[in-house]
Design a protein around this nucleic acid. Structure first.
Lengths: 229, 229
DNA sequence: ACCTGAACACCGTTCAAGT
DNA sequence: ACCTGAACACCGTTCAAGT
C-alpha cells in the first residue's frame, strides 16, 4: 500500500558513527586540504547541513575523527608488559609515530580537546604506565611522559607537513626535492654554515623514520639515566 | 604646475620589507585566524591584489614572515662559546621556544621552505655548531640536532595550539580550564587510568615552560651520555 | 528527532585595466 | 614596473522549512 521503502533512499539516514567513519575515509583518500563539509555530505549522500546535527563545527569533527583512528594504535599496543619499561614506552611511541606518518592530519588534532578524545587519554595513560615502572617521582614521571609525547607529535607533525608546491604538483619527485636541498646546502659558504657542511652527506642519505628513532633513543636514554636503571 | 605630489598618496607604494613587516604586525596583533590578505592590504592602505606582486601566495608570505621574526632569535643567541656545548645548545633551544610561545603562528612555518628562510638555516647551523663540539660522528651529530629541533618546535606547537572554544570566547579563564581538566581526570576510573591519577597533582600545578625545560634536559642528558662528556 | 539546501558572510587568487 | 578592485570559485555555518 505504501511505497515508503522505495522512497526512503531519498532521505539520508546518518549516525555519529557513520559521520566520523566517513570523515576518516575522506581524510585518508583526499587529505585535509580536500576535507570539506560539502565533500563529506556528498559522500554520505546527505545535505550539507546534516552533519551539524552531530557535531557543532569542523574542529569538533576533526577531534572526533582523530580519536576514532587512535583505536588502531591502542589495539597495536595492547599487550606490553615486557621486562624493560623503556622498551615498552618506545613501542608505544613508535606505533603512534607511524600512525601519524600514515595520516598526516592526525598530528594537529591529537589530544587537542581531551573531553572529546577518550582514546588519546587512554594512550597517554598507557605510555605513562610504562614510565611509572621506573620509580621516578610523580613530577619526573609526568615530565618524562609529556616529553615523549611532545617529541613524537612534534617530529611527526614536522615530517608530515605538506610538501612544497612543486612536489605537490608532481613537477619534481620527493627524491629530487631532497637532492635540490642538498645542492642548496652545498652551495652555502662553509665558513658561515660549518655544521650544514659537516652533515651534508648524512642529510643526503637520511631517512625520516630512522632519524626519528635515533632522536627518540636519545630522549629515552636521558630518561633511563635519570631513573638510574 | 603639477599636483602629482598631492595625489601621490592615493596610490600605495609598497615594498617586500613593508609587506612582510606589516604581515608580522598583523599576526602579532590579531593572530593567524584574523590574518587575511584583505586585512593586510587595508593596513597597508593598498588594494587586495597588490600583495601578489611581492609574494605568489599566502603560504609564501607566512614563510617569509616567520623567517623575518627569527632575526630576533639570532640576535639573542649571537655570542655563545661557553665552556659547555650542551649549555649553549640549551640556550638556543630555550630562546627559540620562547619566541614560538610569544608568536604561536611561528611553529607551523619554521623551516618549512628553506629556500625562503635563510634565518632558519642560520639558526639550525648555530645549534648544530654547538653539538659538533661534542665530537660525535656526523650521523650522530645530525640526529641529535634534528632531535632537539623537533622537540622544541613540536612542544611549542603543541602548547601554542589554539585554546578551546570556551576559553577563546572568554567564557572561562585558562586557569579555570586547567581546573576543569584536572576535575575530569580525577573523575576517571583509577584502575583504568592509573598514570593520570598518579600525576594528578603535578598536572594541576604544572607550568608549560618549566615542563618544556625538564623535557629538554632529558634529551640533552641523553645526548651528553652518547658523547661521553 | 532528524534532514534539506538555499542563503549569508566570508575567504584566496586572478586579471584586465589603470598609472 | 607596480598598483587597483571587481570578479571568480570556493569555504564554514545558519536556519526556515520539510519529513
Amino acid at each position: 500500500m505504501t511505497d515508503a521503502p522505495a522512497r526512503a533512499a531519498k532521505r539520508a539516514s546518518l549516525s555519529m558513527e557513520a559521520v566520523v567513519s566517513e570523515a576518516v575515509a575522506l581524510l585518508d583518500e583526499a587529505g585535509d586540504q580536500a576535507f570539506t563539509f560539502r565533500a563529506l555530505a556528498s559522500r554520505l549522500g546527505a545535505g550539507v547541513g546534516s552533519v551539524y546535527w552531530y557535531v557543532s563545527n569542523k574542529d569538533e569533527l576533526l577531534d572526533r575523527a582523530s580519536d576514532h583512528v587512535l583505536e588502531d594504535v591502542l589495539a597495536a599496543t595492547e599487550h606490553l608488559d615486557g621486562a624493560d619499561p623503556i622498551e615498552d614506552a618506545r613501542a608505544v611511541a613508535v606505533t603512534l609515530f607511524d600512525a601519524i606518518v600514515q595520516r598526516p592530519w592526525l598530528a594537529a588534532y591529537f589530544m587537542r580537546d581531551v573531553e572529546q578524545q577518550p582514546n588519546a587519554l587512554r594512550l597517554f595513560d598507557r605510555l605513562g604506565r610504562q614510565i611509572m615502572r621506573l620509580d621516578l617521582t610523580p613530577r619526573e614521571t609526568f615530565d618524562a611522559v609529556s616529553a615523549i609525547t611532545g617529541f613524537v607529535i612534534g617530529t611527526a607533525a614536522d615530517l608530515s607537513q605538506q610538501p612544497p608546491q612543486a612536489v605537490r604538483d608532481g613537477k619534481i619527485s620527493a627524491a629530487q626535492q631532497l637532492d635540490d636541498a642538498v645542492a642548496q646546502w652545498r652551495a652555502l659558504d662553509p665558513d658561515e654554515f660549518p655544521f650544514l657542511h659537516h652533515v651534508l652527506d648524512e642529510f643526503a642519505g637520511h631517512d625520516d623514520a630512522t632519524q626519528f628513532r635515533a632522536g627518540l633513543d636519545l630522549l629515552l636514554a636521558g630518561i633511563r639515566l635519570k631513573a638510574g636503571a
